[in-house]
Design a protein around this nucleic acid. Structure first.
Length: 885
RNA sequence: GGACGCGUAGCUCAGCGGGAGAGCACCUCGUUGACAUCGAGGGGGUCACAGGUUCGAUCCCUGUCGCGUCCACCA
């Protein structure tokens, strides 16, 4: 006997362990099984599971469980990302909190050791959280972006790209994070709109003939100005081109140049040029051969290229002093308030500086070309397809990718420098030494490049490095390319694009055939969840509260949202109840001896109820299958919800009750078997979304077939269309409609429950009559009537209603309020009248009859006839009622 | 400045060319052995607005308004 409800707290860990012990997460060894693989978007080792992970991983699990049941060799390959900056930051903070020596004090080696220690301690958190969710990853293949195999892949890729000229060293402006003292990529910069000022500075002409006014939002950069630019056709300044101004404070003479970058409409029309600290100015400087004077150090303090009194000052302090100095010199012409975009580091949260440094770059524009082509050709498709536009937009305008980071935690760049600045890029130090020996003709000391690679460099290899590349492994042959990548749109650029580029280059094939972009989860108010806002819903808390299945079902059912999901606990509660509903339906089946019988042949059932049930579950199975195949996960969930609750529980089981308690043993046996079989199909169909409760019910209903194994490895239902039976559908539909309408009449007229009239058939086709009379027992129970009787004339005061053209009635005159009944009839009549009116108009339109499809016209004719008929019947009833009253 | 998405019942969302649906919330009734984490019934919507295409538009097209997100070098 089943317990009263499902207890997720005790069942979930037990079931998960059973799956793992059975090796169910490993792909089948069957060599004929087609491969189906998913690589997990590796979460940061620093991280803990947030609701976005929960959604993303639930959908992956739905896919993988479905394909596993379908018989594919289904591999979901898990792992984590070392997350360079994020992890280094966490550990540094931890060191500081514990009062330890800082990173720089303790030195590189000791610090990295600390990070590994920390990783060993808490790196497993998120992975264990995934287990709580029910994620059926093959943990035996778990990878980490910094493990030995992946590091080998990283070195090989770097060296190969370098030798192919696709990685190179360049001195240009980068986004510099003064907090971490490292370069970051464009993608790691967040623009924030802030209030600021334009400071209008006067720069005196060197010949004393006047001044030129420039405006800037960043006064401190004037220390590095090397020109003033005006537009070549700007009449106001034409005569000044070629002259010099003397840069205040610094005293350096700088030229006035003509460049179209200067916008005559903007400010004074003249613009200061600081090539070392502004991306635009850098370009201008290149065009005019201007010197680039860097005035900042790695911490964004003023450096020794500036006058003494400013050296060592923080950039913002320097700004204040420079403005003050201009004011003192009477060269500050105006302070104009403005709002403008300022770049911030996405991790550090500090203002990013454009900073002139030597860095390693990947030639992304070249690698992007095949990656664009692959999507154009449909070798990789985005789902939903709109996202391809976003992908193309980014890829077609891609900039060189700065991959070096001045951090310690990450893949050290495999480049060694000779004493003369010659670089040897090799996979190992030994190989670099050998190359150096050959180059110099003698042994020279080599120094490895200090920098590490951008985290996304190694995760860019994820689709093939995790399968064993650069070795030619069985996994690689079997599972590459992967089938579907499930991820959020926020990392299309960071990750998807890079995987496309690097995978195509090294594997000659796309990393995945399909990219499913899942929605972003927000709180119930639609705000992005963030720790600082305090609106984060902790998925594990929700799992504790409602069970993993309820959370999974909720996320799946809501995953259709175009861009974001607003999650509320009410919704989760509702789907928890859905699980309970299924649980209780199983209890009902159990109590009524509905026992699974593997010899049962659904094709053999005779009773219309059972034929109908069989057809309905067949339709649902087809719907769910199609939905999952097409990543329409919400449709799959909703179809299951509707079938299990509104069809199976509300009607099938209710209609079965009289049979199950009746004397017809043959009917009873068939119905029991059908109920058990349908339940079985439901458990299978629902398993990918609600794995725990379905697995538990599968076990609890094992009966005498305990050896049939776990549900997780059961076969996905494939039901023939011949299971759908239109005749049975017609019969059940009439019964359902009659009962529903009858209930409505009773409720609206407040007929007491104790009243047990007959259901009268006044007028109906022979088939309808036979159906209703044959279902007398069922109708008696569900509608709470005594029986079903055919009469030629409705008795005085009986309440008529029309169902599918048949006129039925309930003789409940003694219980009802005449006025209420008149009102009810009048309302129904009015509805029919409105319908008749509209349909007549439509059919009266010659264009409609001529142009609309025949079946639509026919449908309207039928509708009209039915409405006219029903209206007449009700009017007759109303007239009789009026006569009585 | 570009691009994308969204405006449907009080709330959250389905539907997307032939008479608008669900869940929650609300109101009424219900302790019949699966289920009160439930059952039965009910109220509630000029489908943002304006044009257009069509026999017919919530659905397709154009524009407007509102909300959101991403991208972009403007001093």
């Amino acid at each position: 006997m089943l317990d009263k409800t499902f207890d997720p707290k005790t069942a979930e860990p037990r079931l998960y362990k059973a799956w793992e012990d059975a090796g169910a997460f490993k792909p089948t060894d069957d060599p004929d099984a087609p491969g189906f693989s998913i690589v997990i978007p590796p979460p940061n080792v620093t991280g803990s599971l947030h609701i976005g992970h929960a959604l993303n991983n639930t959908l992956q699990d739905v896919l993988i469980r479905y394909h596993r049941m379908k018989g594919d060799a289904a591999l979901w390959l898990p792992g984590t990302d070392h997350a360079g900056i994020a992890t280094q930051m966490v550990v540094e903070r931890q060191l500081a909190a514990a009062g330890n020596a800082s990173r720089r004090d303790m030195g590189r080696e000791a610090f990295i050791e600390k990070v590994w220690e920390w990783k060993a301690e808490s790196g497993g958190t998120i992975v264990n959280q995934l287990r709580r969710l029910g994620a059926s990853c093959d943990w035996s293949r778990e990878r980490f972006t910094l493990d030995e195999g992946l590091s080998e892949a990283v070195r090989k890729v770097f060296v190969t790209l370098f030798k192919q000229g696709l990685i190179y060293r360049d001195k240009r402006l980068v986004n510099w994070d003064p907090q971490f003292q490292t370069a970051i990529s464009d993608l790691e910069v967040e623009k924030k709109t802030v209030k600021g000022s334009y400071w209008h500075f006067a720069y005196p002409l060197e010949d004393g003939s006047g001044e030129i006014v420039v405006a800037t939002t960043r006064p401190e950069t004037m220390l590095g100005d090397t020109a003033v630019a005006v537009h070549p056709s700007d009449e106001r300044y034409k005569h000044l081109i070629g002259k010099c101004v003397r840069l205040p404070i610094v005293g350096r003479p700088i030229p006035i140049i003509a460049d179209e970058y200067a916008d005559p409409e903007k400010g004074s029309g003249a613009v200061k040029i600081t090539p070392a600290h502004d991306f635009n100015d850098f370009q201008v400087g290149k065009r005019h051969n201007l010197p680039s004077i860097n005035i900042l150090d790695d911490y964004a303090r003023i450096n020794d290229n500036a006058p003494k009194e400013y050296r060592g000052l923080d950039r913002f302090e320097a700004r204040k002093r420079i403005v003050a100095e201009f004011e003192r010199l009477e060269l500050l012409r105006e302070i104009e308030p403005t709002v403008h975009d300022v770049p911030y580091g996405d991790r550090s949260g500090v203002v990013i500086e454009p900073y002139l440094t030597d860095q390693w770059y990947v030639d992304a524009p070249t690698l992007a070309k095949p990656a664009i082509k692959a999507v154009e050709d449909g070798r990789t498709v985005f789902e939903p397809k709109n996202w391809e536009k976003t992908y193309f937009e980014w890829m077609r305008n891609i900039e060189p990718w700065c991959v070096s980071r001045q951090l310690w935690w990450g893949h050290r760049i495999p480049a060694w420098w000779g004493p003369d600045g010659k670089v040897f890029v090799e996979e190992t130090e030994a190989a670099a030494k050998a190359a150096a020996l050959e180059h110099y003709g003698r042994e020279e000391p080599l120094r490895q490049d200090e920098d590490v690679l951008d985290t996304w460099f190694s995760s860019g290899l994820w689709a093939f490095s995790t399968l064993g590349w650069p070795q030619n492994t069985d996994d690689l042959r079997r599972f590459y390319p992967t089938n579907t990548l499930v991820t959020g749109f926020d990392i299309i650029f960071f990750w998807v694009a890079r995987m496309m580029m690097l995978s195509l280059h090294f594997m000659g094939d796309v990393p995945f055939q399909r990219v499913f972009i899942n929605a972003l989860v927000r709180d119930a108010e639609g705000a992005k969840m963030s720790k600082s806002k305090g609106n984060v819903l902790d998925p594990l808390g929700l799992v504790d509260q409602y069970g993993a299945d309820a959370l999974r079902f909720t996320l799946t059912a809501m995953s259709g949202a175009a861009r974001d999901i607003k999650l509320s606990t009410q919704r989760i509660e509702g789907y928890r109840n859905f699980g309970t509903k299924l649980w209780n339906a199983t209890r009902f089946a159990e109590m009524n001896g509905c026992v699974r019988d593997d010899a049962f042949d659904p094709a053999s059932v005779k009773l219309s109820l059972n034929r109908w049930m069989r057809g309905e579950v067949t339709k649902t199975a087809a719907e769910v299958t199609k939905a999952i195949e097409g990543c329409a996960f919400d449709h799959a969930a909703n179809a299951l919800y509707r079938f299990i609750w509104n069809i199976y529980c509300d009607w099938a089981l209710e209609l079965a009750k009289p049979i199950l308690t009746g004397d017809d043993e043959a009917a009873k046996a068939e119905t029991r078997a059908t109920i058990a079989w349908v339940l079985d199909v439901c458990l299978k169909l629902l398993h990918p979304v609600m794995p725990f409760i379905t697995e538990e019910l599968w076990a609890q209903t094992a009966n005498d077939t305990p050896d049939r194994g776990l549900l997780i490895t059961a076969r996905w239902p494939q039901l023939p269309a011949s299971y759908i039976d239109p005749a049975a559908e017609a019969e059940i539909s009439l019964i359902v409609a009659a009962v529903s309408e009858g209930r409505s009449v009773r409720a609206e007229l407040n007929v007491p429950l104790s009243a047990k009239p007959d259901l009268l058939i006044i007028e109906a086709t022979d088939a309808q009559r036979a159906t209703l009379e044959g279902a007398a027992a069922v109708i008696a129970q569900t509608l709470r009537v005594s029986g079903v009787k055919s009469v030629s004339v409705a008795p005085e005061g009986s309440i008529p209603f029309v169902v599918e053209g048949a006129t039925l009635a309930l003789p409940v005159a003694e219980y009802i309020d005449l006025a209420a009944e008149k009102t009810r009839l009048a309302k129904d009549i009015a509805n029919y009248a409105q319908d008749i009116d509209r349909t007549e108009k439509k059919l009266g339109n010659a264009d409609f009859v001529a142009r609309a499809p025949d079946e639509v016209v026919e449908e309207n004719r039928e509708r009209l006839a039915e409405a006219v008929d029903a209206k007449a019947k009700l009017e007759g009833a109303l007239a009789r009622l009026a006569a009585v009253g």
